[in-house]
Design a protein around this nucleic acid. Sequence first.
DNA 1: CTGAAAGCGCTTACAG
DNA 2: CTGAAAGCGCTTACAG
Lengths: 355, 355
Amino acid sequence: MKGIRQLADYLEISIGTVSRALNGKPDVNEETRRRVLEAAEKLGYVANQSGRSLRQGTTNVIGLMTGSDAQTVENSDNFFMGVTDGLQSVFSAHNLDLIVLPCPGDEDPDEYLKRMVARRIVDAMIISSTRRIDKRIDFLKQTRLPFVTLGRTSSSADHAWIDLDFEEVAYSAVNRLAAAGHRTIAVAAPDSDVNLGYVFMEGYRRGLEENGIVYDPSLVIRAKSSEQGGYHAASEWLQMRPRPTALVLIYEMMALGLYRRLAEVGLKPGRDLAVIGFRDGPRGQFLEPRLTSFRMSLHDLGVTVAQTLLSTMPAYAPFYPDQARDCIWPMQLVPGESDPAPAVAASLPAGRQSL
Amino acid sequence: MKGIRQLADYLEISIGTVSRALNGKPDVNEETRRRVLEAAEKLGYVANQSGRSLRQGTTNVIGLMTGSDAQTVENSDNFFMGVTDGLQSVFSAHNLDLIVLPCPGDEDPDEYLKRMVARRIVDAMIISSTRRIDKRIDFLKQTRLPFVTLGRTSSSADHAWIDLDFEEVAYSAVNRLAAAGHRTIAVAAPDSDVNLGYVFMEGYRRGLEENGIVYDPSLVIRAKSSEQGGYHAASEWLQMRPRPTALVLIYEMMALGLYRRLAEVGLKPGRDLAVIGFRDGPRGQFLEPRLTSFRMSLHDLGVTVAQTLLSTMPAYAPFYPDQARDCIWPMQLVPGESDPAPAVAASLPAGRQSL
DNA sequence: CTGAAAGCGCTTACAG
DNA sequence: CTGAAAGCGCTTACAG
């Protein structure tokens, strides 16, 4: 089966009618439509997307651009794969296909995005790993390609976005630790300029403030959002005097490295240090002690991202009349075993830092 | 900037010349070419892919289809993200773009593939998570779309493929454990019909055989390739009488659940049970005890997959004249702390199974 | 309800 | 070396 021409010849009708029948246009005889659909199915005909796109000016494809930095590649921890399913459940209802556009590690994300947009292979874009000031935003606005960002920016007032509630997570983590009696609460935050780092720190500071704890910059550990970063953060913590009794992590996988580092010096998370991670997931759940973290549905997040995006596209907006243009995605605390009261930690001797 | 027409008008030359200049065709005045490239850069012109594709019959896009099953989504553990970079480093040299096609969880992979292929959005496909008998292979051969599989099938004789050396990994894991004195060696294998499960089991049995150990089907634990599956496998192991002193895992993330389950009953991997995982990665490295596993470069794997694929495409084959059509990807043992001799494990009392 | 025809944005023989 | 023209596979006003 080559194209619509062959199908039309086979049916002995014109290609126009075939096209109308296939695309569910009105004013097609029901019997004709049935024959066309049947023949298309039988001969395995599916419209060539290039032909459609060229004529219609739309590709019916939505792009999800994922980060290129080693950080994202190594540690996105299937975050995107989980979101993907939610996205597709919405898109497929409109016959839109989702493709993932992975920016190569050695290519500038701004350039990559430009190239993808210019080639017109997608009708709209979802971009993630937003930085505080993200050039991609201005570029997308200028090209008038519909888009939504997974993550805020400093200029979020004028575009559609969804972001996890980093602020609230940090805030309630600190709050919970303070309520349990912790007074020296460290935080492991990103060493890059991703926007979420700033938001997270705001929540951390608000938490401290509300509990009458003075913010101490020396308790902010800058680390990679990875297992290695967690290992590093633990090493930093071991050097601190006095050692904070609690530590809030921006990324749950850091816990793995942290747990290991503590074990190496005979210390145990949940006993010698209270730890709260970020996203609840299989990794944290099976740690011993189980990591206290925050739950969310990746699928539902994907659904909302998709709906938000579609609501900005004229052709689909009518389906989502009440969709908000932005959304802070809530997360629910899931108590684990890693953040008890500071009793034990505080009573530890300080003399083991040489380990 | 709309299209080639505008660019040509701006330069006051014909669109044919613009196209030839842009595409590096010979027989273009160098001065003209320079002017065209300069103007394109200045005005941000990039050819509309639909126009090109329709005319040329190629899209310059390679698709990587990733699995849809919950297993793959939750646990691919960034395997694909790592491979992606290697793929792109090869493709970009030919101006090919890689897109990831994530099959939705609720769609049949065979149907999804058919749809993507029929729409002609890619020139070639990389498919993964191959099953023993995989309908996608026959389909792709029939459509004559170039493809390579990441994973073997039972019909691998007649298509290009690359696969990790599951056989050798299982074999050398068993060999190493036997050399350390283990005689009852259990294995955690997939409960699905992915092809790698069969290959892995072959290596396991060969390892036993060469060490004069009789294969005992009751030591084969069927489990999901996930943290949860590892937790489950550990529970199964706890029930066994006598308990095997060693366990080989098909997937390294299972170790997390396994470690947790053992900890819950006061047992410790590397002391009460020797464990060897699969792929060496940040997850396993930071476990305590560090997981003995096998190292490989995801990037290099991606490079080889890309080269193998291109060597099957007439337009690119000349660049890769000596490329093999298939390849078993080697992995190197990285000793960890999780698989000591059986001394301690064997001497344990058998009476704790009620835990 | 259907057919004939235009045209989306390109690339590429073909003439000159 | 360049231009004019055909045509890739579709969809969609327009006629009838």
